[in-house]
Design a protein around this nucleic acid. Structure first.
Lengths: 341, 341
DNA sequence: TTGTAAGCGTTATCAG
DNA sequence: CTGATAACGCTTACAA
């Protein structure tokens, strides 16, 4: 075949007898273009297999065709799910995903993200909780002209910049279900302080109790950190009390697995002696024994929605779905809940 | 407090009274540079907070400062672990991670990866199993001048391009342990065909049996696909036999969790009625009940090693560790193994 | 509707 | 050792 050098915009221009600017117009779907010219150039592009050089475009446009996933999330399943959702939307487009973990504890968090964004000049970023709750990061994106979408458990921003879930509401539902099943002494393992998801879920929990005529018992709310071990420790604590809860709501599945573990250690049967409900519906929920009653958090779909928002207005734009701003979680009943003895 | 435009190489050149080429030399640590000039320029760079524009560099160098993670891996924990390892090495360097899932079933796999690499002009890529076993991809990288490292369960390439684990060996150890514990009827749930890890583990399994004077029983080797459900189905199959195995080696933890599930469904106690061993030591292994005896596969460390190899010879190069080519897995004893009744 | 010239911010070439 | 000058491949004025 011809030389092995990839064709550039100049080659296309020469081959189709137009200027490079015209080729550029074709590439960028400029509306003011003679349909005939467009077709001619398009044909040459197709024949040569020409692909615009993203590096050159990035330099000229001062903007890359990259979507960033910025996070400091202790929940592996969540990160992976969001990634999967974003990637599925990016697939077939000219955009790629770049993953950037950060340290939310660092005092230089905002500065770190700033230098990352300034250097990479991303098309846009997806901010995962808990750093998505940091308004400073949002204004930073605004300042730098970088599109952004924040994911979280409550609406922290306008619909164009937010993909939220209704955690508080669904937890109310969960706890109501527990009460309907006959439980009156219900414990909660909360998420770590500073997490909006943690406080939303905790609030939903308390609201449901109060609505059911039960006064939340401070001793039955134990703090966890979304990790297995913290669920284990919290549950030992909860079950050491007298009287002890007959049901526990863990603010995520990993901690729920820890709760199950703790119950087993004490020789308790789940759900006969203790009912447990988790949150997330990650793989572990269906895989442990007994299968865990939990809340399905549509994290992959939320990732897709985030990507769609970021791509809105571009050539690769996908239609935004109705409800792309608020996602509804749902109770998944499995086998870890039963009436108290 | 000057204008808010970021300084460019021209600014630095002007401010330090040298040419831009000299600044470029400083940036790139050119050895032929007057130490005094270097220092002067360096000072200006530090004062202004100048950061070279990666897009411009990418264009001029025809190469990006990006590391690609190319995979089609059904094992979420593995992908995440590798990612974590790579990112930890990339942290603080000028390199970023770009994630690219591909479809290993597609007939256009190689072509897809080719266009990805040609477009993005990555510094290097990490190939995860099972596509890492595709020699066509390796030659493609060579052809395109893209550094690459293949990860896998056997040494498929030279040490510079390979990060391998000793699956076969460790599985021999695992099965020997089972035999030592008293088991003679041992089943295996294999990985899917076409996976080197699957065949390596299966071979190790058979070798150990033979070495222990046991003839592998074909009916006790059931195929799985590394997913929970397949472990469930395979185990139902295994336990339906008469006589049935007293122990099962599952080729990964997810399938081992499925095995546990199946045992529970049938009212069997683990480990009293059935011993189970998994592989990977992913989070689920320690979190299910009983805690799963498994093999620790140092996947995060392997990811780090892969990144180190890719960065070797660059400014950001980290010392390569001894043993960066072959990683040793180890048996982790927990509570899912006991002598047969 | 299309083309020309001038960048975008860096590195390579090749003199000095 | 250092510096003009020309790429790198594309886009944005601004004309025509």
């Amino acid at each position: 075949m011809s030389g092995n050098a990839k064709p550039t915009i100049n080659d296309i221009a020469r081959l189709s007898g137009v200027s490079k600017k015209t080729v550029s117009r074709v590439i960028n779907r400029s509306p003011l273009l003679n349909e005939e010219t467009r077709k001619r150039v398009d044909d040459v592009i197709r024949q040569t297999g020409y692909i615009p050089n993203p590096q050159a475009r990035a330099l000229a446009l001062r903007r890359n065709f990259l979507i960033g996933l910025v996070h400091d999330n202790p929940n592996a399943q969540m990160v992976l799910g969001v990634q999967q959702g974003i990637l599925s939307v990016l697939k077939g487009t000219e955009y790629e995903l770049i993953v950037r973990p950060v340290d939310r504890g660092s005092t230089t968090l905002v500065a770190d993200v700033r230098s990352f964004l300034e250097r990479q000049r991303l098309h846009g970023v997806v901010l995962l909780p808990p750093i998505s709750e940091n308004d400073g990061l949002a204004s930073l994106c605004l300042e730098l002209g970088c599109r952004y979408v924040r994911m979280g458990s409550a609406e922290l921003d306008d619909a164009a910049h937010m993909v939220a879930s209704n955690d508080r509401e669904v937890v109310r539902e969960v706890v109501t279900f527990l009460m309907t099943t006959g439980h009156r002494r219900i414990g909660i393992i909360t998420g770590p302080p500073g997490f909006r998801s943690a406080s939303e879920r905790h609030h939903g929990f308390n609201e449901a109790l109060v609505a059911g005529g039960i006064t939340p018992e401070p001793a039955w709310a134990v703090e966890g950190n979304y990790r297995f071990e913290s669920g284990l420790v919290a549950t030992r604590n909860l079950l050491a009390q007298d009287p002890r809860p007959t049901a526990i709501f863990a603010s995520n599945d990993e901690m729920a697995a820890g709760a199950l573990h703790a119950a087993r250690e004490m020789g308790l049967d789940v759900p006969a002696d203790l009912s447990i409900i988790g949150f997330d519906d990650t793989a572990i929920a269906a895989h442990i024994w007994p299968p865990l009653t939990t809340v399905r958090w549509p994290i992959v779909e939320m990732g897709k929605a985030a990507a769609r928002k970021l791509l809105a207005g571009t050539i690769d734009a996908l239609p935004e779905m109705p409800g792309d701003a608020l996602f509804l979680s749902a109770l998944i009943q499995r086998a870890s809940v039963a009436p108290p003895r």
